[in-house]
Amino acid sequence: MIVALDGFLDAGSAGALACSHLARTGASSAEGGGVVVATFDVDQLHDYRARRPPMTFARDHYEGYEPPRLVVRLLHDVGGSPYLLLHGSEPDTRWEAFCRGVREVIERLGVDLVVSIGSVPMAVPHTRPIAITHHANNPDLLVGEGLWRGELRVPSSAQALLEVRLGEWGLDAQGFVAHVPHYLAQLEYPPATIALLEQVELAARLTIDLAELTPLAAEREEEIGRYLAANAEVADVVAALEQQYDTFARAEAEGSSLLADDEPLPTGEEIGQQFEQFLAGLEGPDDNGGSGRKEG
């Protein structure tokens, strides 16, 4: 079962894009996004005032209310192998009850592995390979060395708690977190989605059709490249991130310190000043009088 919840762990909308892609490509048109085999009562889990669902006001009345959903769908990969997709709004409350509900789904439907995906904003350049943090509640599921050498105190999430609880119940769970350039975190960033789904293929032994995502990723990269070519100050910040990334990579390869002595990473304030117009530049009119396109 693949798990990807909207909200906290979704920089670049990588998980949301993955879910929409899987639902579209993993089901026949007759199924309309796959057969829903389980649903959660979002009224018990969602804080409506914190995350207000959208609806439409049409001239003189309200209509088109889009309630939050949290469902499990039955899908199939390219070769016809079945798998489940748990997706929707991350619960705001009752995380323990949510975990127990997922456990019930797992036991009833005979799930043997849970694979979660997510993404976080990081001070990394978009011109380098997307780093993936791999985690699991069973050491045998881990592949290779992780990126982190010590311990980090991080904000928790429903997905993270689910992995912990499943481990306590003797159920295998692993996950992947993509590192998205933080200056692109508010945009839809297909390269991160592709990187995550490639990991899912390996972990879950699935074959996922990524053909639709590849041109979207290339289009986004070209769009960013055009903007950087026209904005030297922003390009300089990306160059600084590239230098820091390469220094980190060399240190890793040589087994030396991961911190460069004389090459400090730009501060959040410095990067924020350089990129405060980045999104506006991508979304606003281009040089030919057209308009940029925001995705996500």
Rank of each mutant, 00 (worst) to 15 (best):
L152E: 13
V177W: 14
L22E: 06
R100H: 13
P139S: 07
M1C: 09
V120P: 04
G32T: 00
P191E: 05
T214G: 01
L142A: 07
Q277R: 12
V234P: 02
S81E: 15
G175L: 04
V36P: 14
G272C: 06
L22N: 07
L187P: 04
G110R: 10
I132F: 02
Y183T: 06
R205H: 15
A239H: 03
A97C: 00
R220M: 15
L75G: 09
G88I: 06
I117D: 11
N138Q: 09
A240L: 11
A260W: 03
A14C: 11
R250H: 09
L171M: 12
G101V: 03
A195K: 14
I130Q: 03
S28R: 14
G80C: 05
P54E: 00
N138E: 14
G272L: 09
Q159R: 05
G170V: 01
M55N: 09
R100N: 13
A58I: 09
T56L: 12
V154P: 13
A229V: 14
S156V: 03
A50I: 00
A38S: 07
F8M: 10
Y245T: 00
L22S: 04
H76D: 11
G272S: 08
D236W: 01
S256I: 13
G88V: 05
G15F: 01
V37A: 03
R69A: 06
C99R: 01
H179C: 05
S20R: 13
A232T: 12
D286P: 02
Y83A: 10
V143Q: 15
P67D: 08
S28Y: 00
P91A: 03
D172V: 00
T193I: 06
S13Q: 13
A253K: 14
G284D: 15
F176V: 05
R153P: 09
S28Q: 13
Y83S: 11
P68D: 03
V237M: 14
L75N: 07
T39L: 00
P266Q: 04
A18Q: 10
G289K: 10
A4K: 06
E270V: 11
S119E: 09
H126Q: 10
L17S: 04
D92Y: 04
L171H: 05
W169M: 08
V102N: 08
E104A: 15
I117R: 12
D261F: 14
R205C: 12
R220G: 07
G34R: 06
I106M: 09
A11M: 08
L5R: 07
E222D: 14
L141W: 01
I224H: 07
